[in-house]
Design a protein around this nucleic acid. Sequence first.
DNA 1: TCGGTGGGTTGACGTGGATCAAACCCGGGG
DNA 2: CCCCGGGTTTGATCCACGTCAACCCACCGA
Lengths: 247, 247
Amino acid sequence: MSNNAMAARLAFELVKTACSNCNLRELCLPIGIEPAELKKLDELVSTRRRLRRGDFLYRVGQGFESIYAVRSGFFKTDVMIEDGRDQVTGFQMTGELLGLDGISSEVHTCNAIALEDSEVCAIPFSHLEGLSRQIHTLQHHFHKVMSREIVRDHGVMLLLGTMRAEERLAAFLLNLSQRFKARGYSPAEFNLRMSRDEIGSYLGLKLETVSRAFSRFQEDGLLSVHQKKIRILNTDGLKTLMTHQRG
Amino acid sequence: MSNNAMAARLAFELVKTACSNCNLRELCLPIGIEPAELKKLDELVSTRRRLRRGDFLYRVGQGFESIYAVRSGFFKTDVMIEDGRDQVTGFQMTGELLGLDGISSEVHTCNAIALEDSEVCAIPFSHLEGLSRQIHTLQHHFHKVMSREIVRDHGVMLLLGTMRAEERLAAFLLNLSQRFKARGYSPAEFNLRMSRDEIGSYLGLKLETVSRAFSRFQEDGLLSVHQKKIRILNTDGLKTLMTHQRG
DNA sequence: TCGGTGGGTTGACGTGGATCAAACCCGGGG
DNA sequence: CCCCGGGTTTGATCCACGTCAACCCACCGA
């Protein structure tokens, strides 16, 4: 490699860490921000952090000072109560935010765990608050992100409270599919990063039930399933199954 | 009533509408705000609104422009999907905020319905954003409130995903009890404002199951139940039932 | 090559809560 | 006073999912 090429490469590496050059702009916080403002934002995202599969990004009880934007990889969050019961509360992929739960009490109330090797941007929360006092659009966008999390949770509550097993799994797969699509990946074919057990925990089902539902979908020609590799063969079938099932 | 008394009464009625004189200060937004700032806040809460039992505070699809603080009364929020299934996502009492779901898409994503005659303060959201750019503590407090809502929802997800019927009801009653206590009411004796059906919807159970659980608790000496009047006889019993039930 | 290991599938069976149905309770109106 | 209606209770039955257990398969390290 020539000196020039090395220098260029180095410059790229440096620049690449900045929000202004991040290809997640549309998904993450800086949406709709003016170039001048974007520059300020770059200072906000001070730290990057790499995680290996299985690493904790943060744990229950750990002091809260940053939220995190997933730059690459895949996470799950879970909560637990004393007696050992726990529940996966969400799966986060590229461009999604982690850690909003910690704001309320200055302490994280759930665990965030990398399901594959991942990278996140740490956003010191006090900085974010400071900057969002200056930049209206940032402030408003952040509020929208928090609100969207609430709406998402309501959706999960609806799922857990009213849907039967196959409807839950269908809803889950359609949601994943859509999120992959929004990121430029195939909505029809993807790898699950999580185990049957983790899916079950998220959906309020036992892993055997999840497994059976997968088998059923495959029998019915809705999916092809090979371990974690999923291919959706009949999206509409999944949709009707999700909604029209019961009266 | 003398003229003086009437004038005093009138003045009181006027003054009473302001945040600075609201006895919900501790529960609602203005916590920890300086007197000077509290004055600005008073301008924020422009409108009061009275609702009769059964009235909608807002509906799904309605444009969002304000959040609401419950001044008195009792509300429920619910979401629904096309096929008619719906779910109660929460019950809100004095000092709690309603409408945070609407921020994300500028449109309300759930219905808010008064379960008894109620009164709310409407807080225009753009004003709130404006003011929270000036008052750090307000900004931070608002973020905490949103975050707390997320944490609460995670708790409900845990309940819906992992608990059995009686555990759910115990958790629900203990939560209500605590919230009444925080408002200076008896934690041991209170009236349910909602029907068995609404409790069931919130807890992901059928009303018959809720009713049976109430009967069971009464047989076991944990509660006395007379229609909507609940008296908790054994708080610890409820707590152990909630957690220790299963391995 | 082999055994070990951990996740996944499948089957047989049990059960908690849904469903269906009847009776009850209480408040309100004629 | 009775009747009516909505919310609630209670009982009988059903079924979706959990539980328990065996087995399979992919992967891995020896």
